[in-house]
Simulated scan of single mutants.
Amino acid sequence: MNNTHAKFIVIEGLEGAGKSSAIALVRDFIAQHTGATPVCTREPGGTPLAERIRDLVKVADPSDPLCDEAECLLIYAARAQLVANVIKPALANGQWVLGDRHNLSSLAYQGGGRGLMPLVSSVSEATLKGFKPDLTIYLDIDPVQGLQRAADRGALDRIEQQAVSFFERARNTYLSLAEQDDAIVIVDASQPMAKVHSDIVAVLQQQGW
Rank of each mutant, 00 (worst) to 15 (best):
A92N: 05
D28C: 02
R42A: 01
A155C: 01
G18C: 13
N85E: 15
D100F: 14
A80L: 11
L204Q: 03
D142N: 00
V203W: 00
S106M: 05
V83N: 02
H197N: 13
I9H: 10
Q206P: 04
F167M: 07
T136M: 04
H33Y: 10
G115P: 01
F131H: 11
V164S: 08
Q148G: 00
L82V: 11
L56G: 07
L177N: 12
F166H: 15
Q148M: 01
R171I: 05
Q32R: 15
N93I: 02
P133E: 14
R153A: 05
S106Q: 08
V123F: 02
G113Y: 12
T37V: 11
F167A: 08
A78K: 05
L82H: 13
V203K: 04
G154S: 06
R52V: 08
R52L: 09
A108K: 04
I9E: 11
L66Q: 13
G45Q: 00
N3L: 11
W96I: 02
H33V: 09
A22F: 09
N2P: 07
D100E: 12
A108I: 11
I23K: 11
V83T: 02
A178T: 01
V59Y: 09
A22L: 02
L175E: 13
A183D: 03
E160A: 05
G45N: 01
I87H: 02
L74R: 04
A92Q: 03
F8M: 03
G112E: 00
D64W: 12
P192I: 12
D68N: 15
H33G: 07
N172R: 14
I184M: 05
I184H: 03
E15V: 00
I53Y: 12
Q148S: 06
L119Q: 03
L14V: 13
V97T: 14
S124I: 08
E71W: 01
A151M: 06
E51W: 10
R158W: 07
A36V: 06
L175K: 13
D28Q: 15
G94V: 06
I159S: 15
Q205D: 14
L175W: 08
T4N: 15
I53R: 05
A108T: 11
E179T: 13
A84M: 10
Y109H: 07
A50V: 04
V164F: 02
P48E: 07
P44R: 03
V26K: 01
A90L: 06
A70F: 03
R149C: 14
G13A: 10
A50K: 00
V144M: 10
H102R: 04
C72A: 15
I159F: 14
S20W: 05
G16V: 07
E43Q: 13
L91D: 03
S20Y: 04
A80I: 07
Y174E: 14
I23F: 10
E15N: 05
A22K: 02
L175R: 15
Q206I: 08
M193E: 14
C40M: 12
A78R: 07
A92S: 03
A163W: 05
N85D: 14
D134K: 13
V187Y: 05
A17C: 10
R54C: 12
F167R: 04
A189G: 02
A155D: 12
K132Y: 00
L82A: 11
E168R: 15
L135R: 04
F167T: 10
I53D: 08
L25W: 01
I159E: 15
